[in-house]
Simulated scan of single mutants.
Amino acid sequence: MSKLAWRNASRSNTQGNACVEVADLGACVGVRDSKDVEAGHLILDADAFAALVGQIKDGGLDL
C-alpha cells in the first residue's frame, strides 16, 4: 500500500492536525491518517466510501 498515490482528502484541515489521505484503488478507496500511516488503512468499496462521506458531511460522526 505504500506505493499507492496517497493524497490529502479535499476536506482535510490545512493546519496539519486533521489530515485524511485517500488513494484510488480502482473499484475501492483506501483511507488512512496521514499523521500515522504505519497504523494502517481502511479499504472501502465505492458505496461504503460514499456512505462514510455522507455521514461526515451530515455531522453524524462528530465527536
Rank of each mutant, 00 (worst) to 15 (best):
A39H: 09
A48R: 02
C28Q: 14
L25R: 06
T14I: 03
V53Q: 08
K57F: 09
L42R: 03
D36T: 10
L63A: 15
L52V: 10
K57C: 04
K57H: 11
E21S: 06
D24P: 09
M1F: 02
L25H: 04
L4D: 11
L4K: 10
L42M: 09
G40V: 03
V22W: 05
A48P: 00
V31E: 07
L52S: 01
L42A: 01
D62L: 11
D58Y: 11
L44V: 04
C19T: 11
D58W: 01
G40S: 12
D62W: 00
D36R: 15
I56Y: 08
L61G: 13
M1D: 04
F49V: 01
R32E: 08
V53G: 02
F49Q: 08
V22A: 09
A51D: 13
V29C: 07
A50L: 11
G60A: 09
A5T: 06
A9T: 02
G54L: 06
G26D: 10
G40H: 11
L63V: 13
A27D: 14
V22C: 06
N17L: 07
V31N: 12
N13V: 09
Q15C: 07
A48Q: 13
V31G: 09
K57M: 01
K57S: 12
A27R: 08
G59W: 00
Q55P: 03
A48N: 05
G40T: 02
L61S: 13
H41F: 14
L63P: 12
L4R: 05
V37I: 09
R32F: 01
A18H: 12
E38W: 05
A39N: 10
T14L: 13
Q15E: 11
A51N: 12
S34A: 15
A48I: 11
A39S: 14
V22G: 02
A9V: 01
C19F: 01
L63D: 15
G16P: 04
S12Q: 00
Q55Y: 00
L42V: 08
D36H: 15
L52E: 04
V31I: 14
D33G: 03
E21Q: 15
L63Y: 14
A50T: 12
G30Q: 07
A51S: 13
A51E: 10
K57Y: 07
S10G: 03
R11S: 13
K35E: 09
A48C: 09
W6L: 05
E21P: 09
G26K: 03
A39C: 00
S12N: 10
R7C: 06
L4V: 01
E38A: 15
I43N: 06
S34Y: 03
C28A: 15
C19Q: 11
G59Q: 04
V37S: 01
C19L: 08
V53R: 08
G16N: 11
D47Q: 10
D33Q: 00
V29L: 04
R7Y: 06
D24Q: 12
